[in-house]
Design a protein around this nucleic acid. Structure first.
Length: 266
DNA sequence: ATGCCTCAGCTCCTGAGA
């Protein structure tokens, strides 16, 4: 089973790229194998579309099941799967929120949570305060979800780096948004519930990022951050075989500023 | 540089992203 997460920054703009990417084998990076070899479940963030405008037909015709939860202009999440999506839940139950940020479903006995974490803008801002409240609510909810679903994957755009390895200029960016101690404390408290960061379970090249600013040729200069993550519960850890960042879509015409992260299981 | 790019929308500017 292959799972992936991708912040597409507008599904209306990126739909052709998403369908093209889904039709290829993400681990056979130069292949153009037919549909059937690609990822089994993709979590999408920043669809930026209301549910009535979600491209249902296009995904169904490509052979996928979908669950989606969107809103006008901002945010919006979806799960795209080859197998049925069961028991779909939207956002964090009990946490009042105007924003469409989380969608969960069970696929082949694995509980999958796709999430678009708040950006937070800058430490000290109202948006940062909201990010902290959201992270606390997520933690408390995930704690109970883990009891209910021992086979649990939490993946998405976390908008938080784990440490200096995830930051192109860790000295200069220390304490700025995505790199504050407060954000990392929340991220580590999620890990402490019983998760592994799938990416760091394997040997990885240095300076491996999942997001690059559109400006200043940041991708070409590899000035990026690793803020898109796949966390797997202890029960799934032993089945994990690979975790890679697929940089190819970032080289597309009109790319998203994020690129997909993929985890494979036996 | 409170910029630089990109996207959505009450669209020729603004807010937000990260």
């Amino acid at each position: 089973m292959k799972l992936a997460t991708w912040n597409v920054n507008s599904l209306a703009v990126r739909l052709p790229q998403v369908l093209d990417w889904l039709s290829k084998d993400p681990l056979n990076l130069d292949s153009t194998l037919p549909t059937g070899s690609g990822v089994d479940v993709l979590a999408i963030q920043e669809t930026k579309t209301t549910d009535d405008k979600f491209p249902v037909k296009e995904f169904v015709e490509a052979g996928f099941q979908i669950a989606f939860f969107g809103q006008k202009t901002y945010n919006g999440v979806a799960l795209v799967s080859r197998a049925p999506l069961e028991d779909v839940v939207k956002n964090i139950p009990g946490f009042e929120d105007d924003m469409a940020r989380v969608i969960s479903a069970t696929v082949n006995g694995v509980r999958i949570i796709g999430a678009y974490f708040p950006n937070g803008q800058a430490p000290g801002s109202d948006k940062f305060e909201y990010k902290m409240l959201w992270l606390k609510a997520l933690h408390d909810w995930i704690k109970s979800e883990l009891v209910r679903y021992p086979k649990l994957v939490l993946m998405g755009d976390f908008n938080i780096t784990f440490d200096a390895r995830d930051v192109w200029d860790p000295v200069h960016l220390e304490g700025t948004i995505h790199c504050t101690q407060e954000e990392r404390m929340h991220l580590n408290s999620l890990i402490d519930l019983g998760f592994k960061d799938a990416f760091r379970e394997f040997e990885q090249a240095e300076k491996n990022y999942s997001w690059w600013d559109y400006r200043q040729f940041a991708f070409k200069r590899n000035r990026g951050l690793r803020i898109d993550h796949i966390l797997v519960s202890q029960e799934l850890r032993s089945q994990l075989t690979h975790c890679v960042i697929d940089k190819r879509p970032r080289k597309n015409e009109r790319p998203s500023d994020h690129t997909p992260v993929i985890a494979c299981f036996d």
